[in-house]
Design a protein around this nucleic acid. Structure first.
Lengths: 202, 202
DNA sequence: ATATTGACTTTTTTACCATAATAGTCAATA
DNA sequence: TATTGACTATTATGGTAAAAAAGTCAATAT
């Protein structure tokens, strides 16, 4: 029973193909042959091209979220946990070329409005991480009192917008500078006792 | 010499037509006859349909900016000036149905990236207003020290994004709640001596 | 039973062309 | 200088045949 493993192999092939050609230009045959099988067999694992694509993107987004979750797990201070989360999540695509290429070719993967977000369930998971941190900050008195749900949505929107500008529109480093400047300002807006950036942790 | 007046009449006709049909479906004949003239004559005032459209949108955006500028002119406290600007600018489209309809049919009017923003020159004017306030806040010591240019770009991006969500995607009141919650947080992030919302001014 | 194939059918995309609709021009003229 | 209407040029639309790709399935190997 290594069907799951085989699926994963297909997804690894698919992300390469979709990264190179985009959803429309990529053919199911391309993916199948890259995965070392025929199209007919690929359909044994996936119902349709659309499902294959969605599973591929999902797989990438889940890894992203998991990577952030584990990056902040050991951090004790709630404000630092938030800060590191915001920076690491933002920088993630720098080291994940394939996913980044897929996103560049399909900007709608990042949607600002929940109802047109095909991957909203995954984003909800990412927002959960953020919401947890905000909640902990509020109950521990480190953060100002706030409507945590609305604040989560607000901050997540800002985060997604800058992802779009940096990676979908490829506006480069000036956007990153702006993001960091804005992040420090927002950290001050969250923390009751002020906030200053911790020293760089390579 | 009332050529400018005649142009303005055409623009008033044009905004109605573009609001109803959008750029593509609207015809130059539609606009001309609404302005009480023939197409041939309209081309005496405007070179092309494209130019007519751009001038129409420009006209709307300039009025918007001017309206905000005069709304905050009398306000003495720098933090209140910023706060009122942010709220008023955001709510402007509520009372300007035509411009709003044009924007809904052509979402690209609001662009997050400067290089694909057809109306960037006007947005620069709007950003100037914001930058001035930030500068005054910093030099007077009301605001934290900051890189004013980057902060202006950051805040303007956030503002545009929420405009898009509220008016282009028509996500309604939940977005407005989120915007206000986020705005208060950012005001705290800007002001060295804290900030709490002033009482409602009808 | 599970996985795989290749030939097969169905659906979608593309390329072409004719036609209609609309953008844009201009000589005449008020 | 402003305006018109008849004119031309360009762009959008709809129909269609060919090509390409999606999706199916009976046969078969593991």
């Amino acid at each position: 029973m290594d069907k799951l493993l085989r699926e994963k192999e297909i997804l690894e092939a698919a992300v390469k193909i979709f990264a190179q050609y985009g959803y429309k230009k990529a053919t199911v045959d391309d993916v199948a042959s890259r995965a070392g099988m025929t199209k007919g067999n690929l359909y044994f694992f996936f119902r349709s091209k659309k499902e294959l694509y969605e599973r591929t993107v999902r797989y990438g987004l889940q890894n992203w979220r998991d990577s952030i979750a584990s990056a902040i797990r050991e951090i004790g201070l709630v404000e630092e946990r938030f800060y590191v989360m915001a920076l690491r999540a933002y920088e993630y695509l720098d080291n994940h070329e394939d996913l980044r290429a897929v996103v560049e070719k399909d900007p709608a993967i990042f949607s600002l409005s929940p109802d047109e977000d095909r991957f909203h369930d995954i984003n909800l998971g990412a927002m959960d991480i953020m919401r947890d941190i905000l909640n902990q900050g509020v109950v521990s008195g480190v953060f100002y009192p706030m409507d945590v749900n609305h604040m989560t949505e607000f901050l997540f929107s800002v985060y997604i917008m800058f992802l779009i500008r940096a990676y979908v529109k490829s506006e480069g480093s000036s956007v990153s500078t702006m993001y960091r400047e804005g992040l420090l300002m927002m950290m001050r807006g969250l923390c009751r006792n002020g906030f200053s950036a911790p020293p760089e942790t390579a």
